[in-house]
Design a protein around this nucleic acid. Sequence first.
DNA 1: CGCTGATGTATTAGCGCTGTTATATTAGCG
DNA 2: CGCTAATATAACAGCGCTAATACATCAGCG
Lengths: 154, 154
Amino acid sequence: MPDPWASLHQLLTDLDAEIEEVYAARGIQGVRPRFAYPLIRLAHTGPLTIRELARSLRRSHSAISQTVAALRTEGLVTSEPGPDARTRRIDLTERGRALVPFLEAEWRATHAAVAELDAEVPHALTAAVGEVRRALERRSMRQRIGDHLVEPPG
Amino acid sequence: MPDPWASLHQLLTDLDAEIEEVYAARGIQGVRPRFAYPLIRLAHTGPLTIRELARSLRRSHSAISQTVAALRTEGLVTSEPGPDARTRRIDLTERGRALVPFLEAEWRATHAAVAELDAEVPHALTAAVGEVRRALERRSMRQRIGDHLVEPPG
DNA sequence: CGCTGATGTATTAGCGCTGTTATATTAGCG
DNA sequence: CGCTAATATAACAGCGCTAATACATCAGCG
C-alpha cells in the first residue's frame, strides 16, 4: 500500500500523460505541457515581462524565467529588451502564435472533459478538492495527523 | 488560471509538506517522506530484494534502487549479496528498525486524518478519486478530450 | 565440459515534472 | 554613488520515469 494520496498522485500523472497523447496525436513537437499556459496567456495579454507573466500564472519569477528560456530555445517566444531596459518583453513568435488556437481548444476541451467527469460521478472531484481545501483551512493536516497520532511505547 | 488539476497538484504538494512538518516536529533527521514506505514494508516482510520491494510498493525497480541507495547512505538499510549473487537482500539496520514504530504511527494517523476529512466534507476525496478512475476506464481522458475538442478554423 | 545466448537483477545516466535559494548583471532613481 | 528592482543563471531540492549498462545465472548445444 502506498501513501494515502498515492492514487491521487497516480491519477494526476496519468492525466498529464493523456494530455501529452493529445498533443502527440496532433503531431505537435517540442511543446511540453508546461508550455501551454504561458503561451495562451501571452496570446491574450500581449507581450509581458517575466514578472508580469509570473504573477499572472502564480509562479515564481525564477520558475517562469526558466520556462521562458525553454520556450525561447524552442522558438516559441522572443525576449526583447523593453522600454525599461531592465525588463524584457516576452512575446510570441509566429510559431508560438500558430500553436495557440490548438492549445486553447485543447484547454477548453479538457475543462469540458473534467466537467463531464464531475457530472458523471457521485462525488465530483473538483468539488471534493475545494471542500478539502476549506476543511484544511479550518484545521491543518498537520494538526489532524497530530490528533490521531498514537505512538507505540518504547 | 492554471491547468484544470493545478489545484489538485497544489493540494498534494501541501499535504506532502505537512507530513514533513510532522517528521520535523518529532526531530527526525535525514528521513525523507519517500523513505517511510520502504522501511515499513521491510519491517513487515523481512529482507527483500530490490525487485520484490519494487513490486510490493508498485514502483519501478529503478526508482527503488535509487531510494535504497539513499537509505543505505542514511544508514537505514543494508544491502547484502543474496544466495543468488545476482540479487541483494535489503534489510533494516538498527537505526532503520527503530524508526518504524513512529513511521507506522504516522502512517495510521494520516490515514485516520484522511478518513476524517472524507467524512467531514460532502464530496469525499477518496471516493471521488476512485469514481473518476472507474469513469476513465470506461472512457479515457484522451477520448473525452477528443470528443470535446473543437478546433478553430485556420 | 565449456562456450554462448537468453533471462533476471541491479545500477547508473539522463530526462521529465515541480520548485527553491543565492548570486550576478544591469538599469533606474534619488 | 549607492540603493532598489528586474532579470538571468547556477546549483540544488523533491518526486518519478526509461533506457543503457554491467553482471550473474542457467539452459542448451557442440
